[in-house]
């Protein structure tokens, strides 16, 4: 199953749009065939057909009356659909709010109200409970991006200085993929994220886990990793809740070990890829804002910091 396809919907709005798409392809295809057949008839048809087709009346019928009827019906149908997409879905619960901020070239997700002094902050993945409306409130910290989870809904632009809304809902638990669709600079191509729909219970459990501050290192290599993190200056850009680092330039790493991907959908997430990313982020995703640390860290330090980050589940 394709995780990022408008034709493989996984939620009610995605399904409505996919159904509309099939209607359009069917109707459009039929009209296309009809017009091509008429062209063919105009060339090789019999005298009677060609005389019928070669008149002003044919233009009025085929070029005016037919489109007006078809397009009026289509307009009314699609307006009804647009209205339905704007209305809350059944379920009663108020929508879950998630703020998504676009950055060159990654995503910051915030869950307002999940902590006493704000909310948890994560990156490059949206976790949502199934069967509940989720209202994405999107904006940008720098240039214009656009958020697209084709299986759930169409795009919504993330524009600095403006908050846009997109209501999504997933029916079944599962993982979907989304991507930036407004050209945003060098690594526009590598700005993706995952959506993980979970049962309400699993989602609540995940949320509880995310509410915790970062775990204290319980092994020497992890302690070394935490120390290297500070010494190398990682805290100048990244926040790790429960430590002294709270910069907001790069992704919040409080629970980085629990995430589905690294580098905004570029790599799987485990100790090896973490080390690789830290050492060579400019080789893996050239032009992104994080420097490569291959020269600054030796092998031992790299392994340690990767191990510590991996432990932040």
């Amino acid at each position: 199953m394709n995780l990022q396809s408008a034709m493989h919907p996984a939620g009610p709005d995605g399904e409505r749009i996919a159904a509309l798409s099939w209607l359009l392809f069917g109707g459009g295809g039929a009209i296309f065939v009809l017009v091509m057949v008429l062209v063919l008839v105009a060339v090789v048809g019999g005298r009677w057909e060609r005389r019928l087709l070669g008149s002003r009346r044919a233009i009025v019928v085929g070029g005016i009356a037919f489109p007006v009827v078809v397009l009026t019906a289509l307009l009314l149908h699609t307006l009804g659909l647009a209205r339905a997409i704007g209305l809350p879905l059944a379920g009663g619960e108020p929508p879950l709010r998630i703020e998504v901020v676009g950055h060159q070239f990654w995503w910051e997700m915030r869950y307002p109200g999940t902590l006493p002094d704000g909310g948890i902050v994560t990156a490059n993945e949206i976790r949502i409970p199934t069967g509940r409306d989720v209202m994405l409130e999107v904006t940008s910290a720098d240039v214009i991006h656009s958020l697209w989870i084709p299986a759930l809904h169409g795009k919504i632009d993330m524009i600095p200085g403006l908050v846009n809304h997109r209501r999504i809902r997933a029916d079944e638990p599962g993982v979907l993929r989304g991507q930036c669709t407004e050209f945003c600079g060098a690594q526009h191509a590598m700005m993706a994220f995952y959506v993980m729909a979970q049962t309400p219970e699993d989602f609540a459990a995940w949320l509880d886990q995310q509410r915790l501050p970062a775990a204290e290192p319980d092994r020497p290599i992890l302690a070394l990793g935490r120390q290297v993190f500070g010494a190398a200056g990682c805290g100048g850009c990244h926040a790790v809740r429960g430590t002294e680092w709270n910069a907001r330039i790069g992704p919040d790493l409080t629970h980085v070990g629990s995430r589905l991907s690294l580098g905004a959908g570029v790599l799987e997430n485990h100790r090896g890829t973490l080390a690789g990313w830290i050492a060579g982020s400019q080789d893996l995703k050239p032009g992104n804002r994080m420097p490569s640390f291959a020269a600054a860290l030796d092998g031992q330090e790299l392994r340690a910091v990767a191990a510590w980050l991996e432990s932040l589940k």
Binding site: V68, L71, T72, L75, L76, L79, G80, A82, R83, G86
Partner: peptide, 18 residues
């Protein structure tokens, strides 16, 4: 006239600013 009617129809169906 056709264009004006097609452009005005939505106001009967969609919310004014939503």
């Amino acid at each position: 006239a056709l264009a004006m009617v097609w452009e005005a129809v939505p106001v009967l169906i969609l919310p004014p600013c939503g």
